[in-house]
């Protein structure tokens, strides 16, 4: 059976478009490579959905879980799908204080993503600059920076974060500081490795011959060419920052109870779990898993697409 002519034409146009696109811009080629994996595309849309939920949490949540005037203690520990005292249906149940779990999860997602992305962004900036500086200037500066990196990488992230938080105390700012301290070294190592290769390329010689300042050479010429590996490491590290924050909050070391992230919600549910009230812990955990998994799946496909060794 032949397809109707208009679809066939559309398909042809599409094919031709794709071929032209590959010749046209690197971004189009990247897009075509990335969409080769169906799972990665699904993960991307899931992540966008998660991001939107987090951003618009105050507008889309059924209730404001932290407005004490609207939370009824009578509604506490209701199983999923039950109806509350004021006729509202709690699709994911309520927690020990009578808060709607769905709303709490949306707000928690907001905190978790904010902390993870902010910490990841700061760590990327600091770590990236250090890596570029180490590779570009070499010598003593390079030795010093890389010694610090090696030292840092000798200790597991959670250990350093725990010690820091034990010393600093709780708070959004403090957990972001701890995550940055834990993560910068990964970016430094990655950027330095690719910058060392790029430094000897001809365009770098040309830029230096033009007598451009160090700043311009490093950030306008060297940095853009070191970006692909940085992006890959960045996705994985943001996922790991979110997971680490959740773990620390679960241990009671991370965020204060006034700004509950997903980790804290899970910890709160822990107390009710042995009596069979599973939903208080399970649903925030699933939200956390979906977030981390989607970012990791995107990162995995990015690694394949951006890896110069595998480039066609």
């Amino acid at each position: 059976m032949t397809p109707p002519p208009d679809i066939a034409v559309a398909a042809n146009v599409f094919d031709a478009g794709e071929q032209r696109a590959e010749a046209q811009t690197p971004f189009r080629r990247f897009l075509a490579d990335f969409t080769e994996s169906k799972i990665a595309v699904v993960a991307f849309f899931v992540f966008v959905a998660v991001l939107l939920c987090a951003m618009f949490a105050p507008w889309i949540s059924p209730t404001d879980p932290y407005d004490l005037s609207k939370v009824d203690i009578i509604d506490n520990r209701l199983p999923p799908g039950s109806e509350g005292i004021d006729g509202l249906t709690y699709w994911l149940g309520t927690d020990g204080a009578g808060r709607d779990m769905l709303s709490a999860i949306l707000y928690g997602l907001r905190t978790s993503l904010f902390v993870g992305v902010t910490a990841g962004g700061i760590a990327l900036t600091i770590g990236g600059v250090l890596g570029l500086v180490a590779a570009y200037f070499g010598g003593f500066i390079d030795t010093l920076i890389m010694r610090l990196v090696d030292f840092k990488l000798g200790f597991p992230s959670i250990l350093i974060a725990m010690i820091l938080l034990a010393v600093l105390g709780k708070g959004v700012d403090k957990i972001i500081i701890s995550l940055v301290v834990v993560q910068w070294a990964y970016y430094t190592r990655t950027v330095r490795a690719s910058a060392l290769v790029e430094r000897n390329r001809e365009y770098m010689e040309a830029a230096q011959c033009l007598a451009l300042g160090h700043f311009s050479v490093v950030f306008r010429h060297l940095l853009p060419n070191c970006l692909p590996p940085l992006i890959v490491v960045g996705t994985v590290q943001i996922a790991s920052a979110i997971a680490l924050e959740a773990t620390l909050s679960f241990l009671g070391l991370g965020l204060p109870t006034t700004e509950p992230s997903l980790g804290l919600l899970i910890a709160n549910g822990f107390d009710y779990m042995l009596s069979g009230r599973y939903w208080i812990s399970i649903f925030p955990g699933i939200a956390l898993l979906i977030t981390i998994l989607s970012i990791n799946l995107i990162g995995d496909q990015l690694r394949d697409v951006l890896n110069p060794r595998l480039q066609k």
Binding site: T247, G263, M273, I282, G285, L289, N296
Partner: peptide, 18 residues
């Protein structure tokens, strides 16, 4: 393996207990 290292360890512990 991707699911394995995306799963938050503490949550897995809770699920195993349940």
């Amino acid at each position: 393996s991707i699911v394995g290292f995306s799963l938050p360890g503490f949550w897995v512990g809770l699920m195993l207990i349940i």
